[in-house]
Lab assay of single mutants.
Amino acid sequence: TQSIHIEKSDTAADTYGFSLSSVEEDGIRRLYVNSVKETGLASKKGLKAGDEILEINNRAADALNSSMLKDFLSQPSLGLLVRT
């Protein structure tokens, strides 16, 4: 696993530069990185398409609903625990 911390203040970007997809496997919801913008903040921090997001801001990914995800992604900083 890899811990990634991203700050939007690093650039004038209003997004982190990646998209997520939610997949249900064996009754457990998993979050995967769908795509990463080549010039985006997430790419600079090493996030890659296909990575599994285990935690966002110290909250287990399978416990997050879509409104919580939207809220986290609109925050000025983001902490991710990722399995590559």
Rank of each mutant, 00 (worst) to 15 (best):
residue 44 K to E: 09
residue 55 E to P: 00
residue 42 A to R: 01
residue 64 L to C: 13
residue 31 L to D: 05
residue 61 A to M: 07
residue 70 K to L: 10
residue 23 V to T: 11
residue 82 V to I: 10
residue 10 D to R: 08
residue 81 L to A: 05
residue 35 S to K: 10
residue 8 K to W: 04
residue 73 L to P: 02
residue 73 L to E: 14
residue 79 G to K: 15
residue 23 V to G: 04
residue 13 A to S: 11
residue 44 K to S: 08
residue 53 I to H: 01
residue 33 V to Y: 01
residue 27 G to L: 01
residue 21 S to M: 14
residue 35 S to P: 00
residue 16 Y to I: 02
residue 40 G to S: 07
residue 43 S to N: 13
residue 71 D to G: 09
residue 80 L to K: 06
residue 35 S to M: 06
residue 7 E to Y: 13
residue 15 T to C: 11
residue 64 L to K: 01
residue 15 T to N: 12
residue 33 V to S: 03
residue 44 K to P: 05
residue 19 S to V: 07
residue 54 L to R: 03
residue 9 S to T: 11
residue 17 G to R: 03
residue 55 E to T: 07
residue 37 K to D: 15
residue 53 I to Y: 02
residue 65 N to G: 09
residue 10 D to Y: 06
residue 58 N to A: 05
residue 23 V to R: 10
residue 62 D to S: 13
residue 69 L to C: 12
residue 1 T to Y: 13
residue 60 A to H: 07
residue 72 F to R: 03
residue 6 I to V: 06
residue 23 V to M: 08
residue 12 A to G: 14
residue 44 K to I: 10
residue 45 K to E: 15
residue 45 K to H: 09
residue 72 F to Q: 11
residue 39 T to G: 15
residue 52 E to A: 02
residue 11 T to N: 14
residue 29 R to Q: 13
residue 23 V to L: 08
residue 57 N to A: 00
residue 70 K to I: 09
residue 78 L to G: 03
residue 81 L to I: 08
residue 65 N to D: 14
residue 42 A to H: 00
residue 10 D to I: 05
residue 60 A to N: 15
residue 42 A to I: 04
residue 51 D to L: 02
residue 6 I to E: 01
residue 36 V to K: 02
residue 46 G to C: 03
residue 58 N to T: 10
residue 81 L to H: 06
residue 35 S to V: 07
residue 42 A to C: 08
residue 68 M to S: 07
residue 19 S to M: 06
residue 79 G to W: 12
residue 28 I to T: 13
residue 29 R to T: 13
residue 56 I to N: 04
residue 29 R to W: 05
residue 56 I to D: 04
residue 7 E to Q: 10
residue 56 I to V: 10
residue 54 L to W: 02
residue 5 H to P: 01
residue 11 T to M: 09
residue 40 G to M: 01
residue 38 E to G: 09
residue 51 D to W: 07
residue 63 A to F: 06
residue 26 D to P: 04
residue 47 L to P: 02
residue 49 A to F: 06
residue 51 D to C: 08
residue 57 N to S: 03
residue 78 L to K: 03
residue 60 A to W: 01
residue 41 L to R: 09
residue 22 S to V: 11
residue 44 K to V: 08
residue 10 D to K: 10
residue 23 V to W: 06
residue 64 L to Q: 00
residue 78 L to P: 03
residue 26 D to I: 06
residue 74 S to Q: 11
residue 37 K to I: 12
residue 3 S to W: 15
residue 2 Q to P: 00
residue 15 T to M: 07
residue 14 D to L: 05
residue 54 L to K: 04
residue 38 E to K: 14
residue 52 E to P: 00
residue 63 A to R: 13
residue 64 L to V: 14
residue 30 R to Q: 04
residue 76 P to M: 04
residue 26 D to G: 10
residue 18 F to M: 06
residue 3 S to M: 15
residue 39 T to Q: 13
residue 7 E to P: 03
residue 82 V to G: 02
residue 59 R to G: 06
residue 9 S to D: 02
residue 35 S to H: 09
residue 77 S to A: 12
residue 70 K to S: 12
residue 55 E to I: 00
residue 79 G to P: 03
residue 14 D to S: 08
residue 37 K to F: 09
residue 65 N to L: 01
residue 61 A to P: 14
residue 47 L to F: 01
residue 11 T to F: 10
residue 19 S to K: 06
residue 47 L to D: 00
residue 82 V to E: 10
residue 64 L to T: 10
residue 53 I to G: 01
residue 55 E to V: 04
residue 63 A to C: 12
residue 74 S to T: 14
residue 77 S to T: 10
residue 5 H to I: 11
residue 31 L to M: 07
residue 36 V to G: 04
residue 1 T to I: 14
residue 2 Q to V: 15
residue 27 G to Y: 00
residue 10 D to W: 05
residue 69 L to G: 00
residue 10 D to H: 06
residue 40 G to E: 01
residue 33 V to A: 06
residue 11 T to I: 07
residue 34 N to P: 02
residue 62 D to N: 13
residue 6 I to Q: 00
residue 77 S to R: 15
residue 7 E to W: 08
residue 58 N to D: 05
residue 69 L to E: 06
residue 17 G to C: 02
residue 55 E to C: 03
residue 25 E to W: 02
residue 16 Y to K: 00
residue 65 N to F: 00
residue 51 D to K: 01
residue 53 I to C: 02
residue 11 T to V: 08
residue 48 K to P: 01
residue 44 K to Q: 15
residue 63 A to L: 11
residue 57 N to R: 01
residue 24 E to H: 09
residue 35 S to L: 05
residue 9 S to G: 14
residue 63 A to T: 14
residue 69 L to M: 12
residue 40 G to C: 06
residue 67 S to P: 08
residue 51 D to A: 06
residue 83 R to A: 14
residue 42 A to T: 04
residue 52 E to G: 03
residue 82 V to K: 03
residue 43 S to R: 10
residue 79 G to Q: 15
residue 77 S to Q: 05
residue 2 Q to L: 13
residue 61 A to G: 02
residue 80 L to D: 04
residue 44 K to C: 04
residue 8 K to N: 06
residue 11 T to S: 14
residue 57 N to G: 02
residue 81 L to D: 04
residue 79 G to N: 15
residue 42 A to Y: 00
residue 26 D to M: 09
residue 23 V to E: 08
